[in-house]
Design a protein around this nucleic acid. Structure first.
Lengths: 337, 337
DNA sequence: TTGAAAGCGCTAACAA
DNA sequence: TTGTTAGCGCTTTCAA
């Protein structure tokens, strides 16, 4: 299986120079190097298909050229887009991405974090439930750490999030303005997850502004019954006036949608539907689904840029601990009366 | 930023032993080691939060404990599920996953592959368009390489795919049996991609068995007009008898669906819809979408297991160059007459 | 313009 | 039962 890899020694020998000279060439220190040597080394490298061993370089230079991004679920469009944008920033700078999925599990997250540190990652991008903040703080003492999507207050850690509170309020206001009399907000228990809390806060604020009582349906992703229980509640409310349902994220809408749609065939047009996040199927259903598009690509790009600056030794001063990027409301027919 | 990392030297000093002894402990060579030393080292390691530097271990042992999986698109449910299953197999064995996205771009794929080799990955899992097979062959001379989803004939490379041809034929037969008189197969140009070719072959075979003429609509993902062009074709055909549309993958259905659904409101129930792949929205639309579920988790698990065997030095003999796992037809109301 | 030598953190003979 | 030593492939003083 192993065809003996080419090392810097092989190159040096073939080019008739010392490994130091080859190393100089590799690091583009051409200032003091004869053009002839340069060409000779270039030739040999090309012929031998030589690529320096990144592990050895890393060991020497105390950096690995690897950055990890760890998210709760690699399938969420939010994360897919984030990872993609991040790659596009980091790849040109020679960084490889170690992608991990915590599955929202505390132990697993801790295990993976430790493994990554041992792997000598140069930086960490993390979407977390906040269950291992002490460990994250330790890591942040060693390398740059940026939290995305969810905000936690950890020393030396920058957070990049979207404007959950105001985007949520904006959506809910628009619903009331459209004429919906009641808006059911469907969410999971906050459990210290900032996004959930903020989206709820935004909902509450809009309710307050319009003098409506908050109407909150708590669900548990793992328990279909919690979703099913909401349906009759919505149905009976719909008899009294136009009602809409607003889910705190795309996955909740995915689970709730079939049951609600079955209802609306009889209650045509009276039950508005909206969700935070922009599922890829939003334009497919009829009527197309109103949703809140998060600036995932921008977040990824911003994080990537910031990391490069930090790794370069630049940046560090006046860095904001929290950066908020704006979402966009995509208003569709699913919320039209 | 850097709080000086703990090394094996620190541990040795604190425990009052040599680094060799610590190394022995780390590698569980307890056979010749006093219980006392063992405990002492364990204590120190715990206190210092020591974790061995994986880079240094890798440099020494000529392995990195990193495996790369490179796919065309990290957002496809197929790949998400594959990556997840792979992680679950490899993680317990101490491997970290370098996830890469080629975006189906030849240059990008080549660039990433080279970068990964330089990063000293121990193995490679690859979904490819086949544009860099020579390079892949070179890599396969060094480390285990497994191709997923798409089959190419490369020395030393095992391929794991699904039964595209027969699953496609099964679906199309079921459509004819249901009473659809014509089935439009929507696909991208084969371009040497085995999955496309095989799904087309299966379609053709079923057509042959039922004495129908193949009816193929070629589309280009980047060009919406190619999708739009199919709609009137389907519409006029639908006047002559029951027609169904079968897309070669989930993304094509995603793009085609809105236009087709608009039609079917007038042609209610006459236009059947089915797709290869199982989009997460398949059960959401009305009527729910018939689709072919690929055994992605099984593929991932199989690949993971096989890799571990190969990396262990076991396996190697009698290994099949091609492993085919079966898909499942999910028959729903979208194809009921 | 170039090279010798030390050392990054670790493992593995070989000695003791 | 433990330690000494020689590297893994590379970068980087320091000298020539």
């Amino acid at each position: 299986m192993t065809g003996k890899r080419v090392t810097i020694h092989d190159v040096a020998k073939a080019a008739g120079v010392s490994i130091t000279t080859v190393s100089r060439y590799l690091n583009q220190r051409y200032d003091a190097m004869s053009g002839e040597t340069k060409v000779r080394i270039a030739d040999v490298i090309a012929n031998l298909h030589y690529r320096p061993n990144a592990l050895a370089q890393g060991l020497k230079g105390n950096r690995s050229k690897m950055i990890s991004v760890m998210v709760v679920n690699i399938g969420y469009p939010y994360n897919v887009s984030l990872i993609r944008a991040l790659t596009h920033k980091l790849d040109p700078a020679g960084y490889n991405l170690l992608v991990c999925e915590s599955e929202g599990d505390k132990e697993r997250e801790a295990h993976l974090l430790r493994s990554l540190v041992a792997q000598q990652i140069d930086a960490l991008v993390l979407q977390t439930n906040g269950d291992n903040n002490a460990l994250v703080a330790e890591i942040a003492a060693q390398i740059p750490v940026i939290l995305v999507d969810r905000h936690f207050d950890i020393p030396r850690v920058t957070c990049v999030v979207t404007d959950n509170e105001s985007a949520s309020a904006t959506l809910v206001r628009a619903l009331y303005r459209e004429g919906y009399e009641r808006v059911l907000f469907v969410t999971e228990r906050e459990d210290g997850v900032s996004t959930r809390q903020q989206r709820l806060d935004g909902y509450r604020r809009a309710c307050g502004e319009y003098g409506r009582n908050p109407w909150i349906g708590y669900v548990d992703r793992g328990d279909p019954a919690t979703f099913a229980a909401l349906v009759p509640e919505v149905e009976s409310a719909a008899y009294l006036g136009p009602v809409s349902v607003y889910t705190a994220n795309g996955l909740l809408m995915l689970k709730l949608y079939p049951a609600l749609r079955a209802l609306s065939t009889t209650q045509t047009g009276r039950i508005g539907l909206a969700t935070f996040d922009e599922p890829d199927w939003a334009p497919l259903v009829f009527p197309p689904l109103t949703c809140v598009r998060q600036p995932t690509a921008e977040i990824g790009a911003w994080v990537g840029k910031r990391l490069l600056a930090l790794l370069d030794g630049r940046g560090k001063l006046g860095k904001p601990a929290l950066r908020t990027l704006p979402s966009t409301l995509i208003w569709q027919k699913s919320t039209s009366l």
